[in-house]
Amino acid sequence: MAEQINLDEMKKAIGTQSEPSTIEIEKGMIRKFAEAIEDPNPLWQDEQHAKKARHGGIVAPPGLLMAVMMVGQGSPMPFRPPMPRILDGGGEWEYFKPIRPGDVLTVVGKLYDIREREGRMGKMLFIVSETTWTNQNNELVARALGTLINY
């Protein structure tokens, strides 16, 4: 049961945190994101328009934090996913504060959980990572849990 032993080894890494990284939110980044998903909402791009809305200025759409590499996502695994194939199992994003152009976010990733399951295609690992984003005022702006399926 070599695979079982590996899982136990991997589980020891639960709780491992990444080194914090920082990311500066820019208007151009938000525009590029909105264009990629074809979301024409003026709240993401039109300062004059956004000024009159709830947050009083341009903010990032909820999806921005789903664009993994753009906003950083600590993937603090001290090992590579052991099986050859990877699928995105899903995720959960919680938003506490609006994210605005000019914000400098500190991103920390943490290995949150590893589970094993027998699926249609054999053994599958569910690797869950937590990511937190904190802004320059030391406010927690968002938290996410993302699940990778490794099979």
Partner: peptide, 24 residues
């Protein structure tokens, strides 16, 4: 998958409008 999740984000931000907020 993240593109689909972003579309669902758009579904919600369209609905809540300028005075609402997507929380989760």
């Amino acid at each position: 998958g993240r593109l689909k999740s972003s579309f669902l984000g758009q579904l919600l931000s369209d609905w809540v409008g300028e005075e609402g907020m997507v929380k989760k």
